Simulated assay, not measured.
Amino acid sequence: MRRNIKLKKTVLALTTAALLTTGIAVPTHDADAATKKKSVKYKKSSRNVASVARSIAANRVYRYGANNSYAVDCSSFAQQVMRAVGKNVPRTTYAQMRAGKPVYSPKAGDLVFFNGGSHVGVYIGNGQMVDALNPYEGVRQRSIYYIHGSITGFYRY
């Protein structure tokens, strides 16, 4: 069962990537009823941002401009994780940066921005983040140094 879901996500991500590179419009609604996931509510006692971010990432694929229970882009992923841990942040990376407070000693739960704000990830500590990178790399945990370019900064909410 898990293998089928993973295969469906892979096929969908590859198809989306192919459509995006050909310029064909890709809808951002939930793909189909069979793959829909119910939104998970987290209790205050289980607000470990790393586990919340990994849990949300496990049920999402990357799709530019998407913000639903199946597909996300980097800023909507960050928004969904922050909402799940009880914090409200805006939808776009630039609005997220304006709403946050820059910090120089990042903690798990801060957002980390790259290349002037063109990308965002959820910092989970120890130089790691969970982010939605692109259709090929997907939504997952990776090093903050994995992103090509430079770190713009860490922001707290």
Results as ranks from 00 to 15, higher is better:
Asn88His: 13
Ser45Thr: 13
Asn48Thr: 07
Ser39Leu: 04
Lys8Arg: 15
Val26Thr: 13
Gly100Ile: 03
Ser55Pro: 01
Gln96Phe: 02
Asn48Gly: 10
Ser118Gly: 10
Asp30Pro: 04
Asn48Val: 11
Ala50Ile: 01
His29Val: 02
Val103Asp: 11
Thr152His: 11
Phe154Asp: 10
Lys37Glu: 11
His119Ala: 14
Val81Gly: 08
Val72Glu: 09
Val26Pro: 01
Val112Ser: 07
Ala99Pro: 01
Val103His: 10
Val89Lys: 00
Met82Ser: 08
Gly121Leu: 04
Ala95Gly: 03
Lys107Glu: 14
Pro106Ser: 06
Leu111Lys: 00
Gly121Thr: 03
Ile5Trp: 13
Pro106His: 04
Gly117Cys: 08
Gly149Cys: 09
Leu14Arg: 15
Val26Trp: 01
Arg98Cys: 00
Tyr146Ser: 15
Ser118Leu: 06
Val49Ala: 03
Arg142Met: 07
Leu19Asn: 08
Leu111Asn: 02
Ser55Gly: 11
Val61Thr: 15
Cys74Gln: 07
Val11Lys: 11
Val40Ala: 07
Asn134Thr: 13
Ala95Ser: 14
His119Pro: 09
Arg91Ser: 02
Val81Ala: 07
Ala50Glu: 15
Asn134Arg: 01
Gly153Tyr: 08
Thr92Ile: 04
Thr35Ala: 09
Ile147Pro: 01
Thr93Asp: 01
Tyr157Gln: 09
Ile124Asp: 02
Gly127Ala: 14
His148Arg: 15
Val49Glu: 10
Gly116Tyr: 12
Tyr42Met: 04
Thr21Tyr: 04
Leu14Asp: 08
Val85Trp: 05
Val89Met: 09
Tyr157Lys: 05
Arg60Tyr: 03
Val72Cys: 13
Leu19Gln: 11
Ala84Ser: 15
Asn4Val: 08
Ala13Thr: 08
Pro135Lys: 01
Asn4Pro: 01
Gly65Asp: 05
Leu133Tyr: 14
Pro135Asn: 09
Ala57Met: 07
Lys6Glu: 15
Cys74Pro: 06
Val61Phe: 10
Gly121Asp: 06
Gly86Phe: 03
His29Gln: 04
Thr28Asp: 14
Thr92Ala: 11
Pro102Lys: 10
Arg47Leu: 15
Ser105Ala: 12
Ile147Trp: 15
Met1Phe: 10
Met1Thr: 13
Ile56His: 06
Asn4Tyr: 14
Val49Tyr: 09
Gln80Met: 15
Ala66Ile: 09
Leu20Cys: 00
Asn68Pro: 10
Asn68Leu: 08
Gly149Pro: 08
Leu20Trp: 05
Tyr146Cys: 05
Thr92Pro: 10
Asp73Arg: 00
Thr152Gly: 02
Tyr42Gln: 03
Val130His: 13
Arg63Pro: 00
Ala33Met: 05
Arg83Trp: 02
Tyr157Cys: 01
Tyr123Asn: 05
Tyr146Phe: 15
Arg98Ser: 05
Pro90Thr: 04
Ile147Lys: 10
Asn115Gln: 09
Gln141Phe: 05
Lys38Ala: 14
Gly65Tyr: 06
Ile56Leu: 15
Gly127Glu: 14
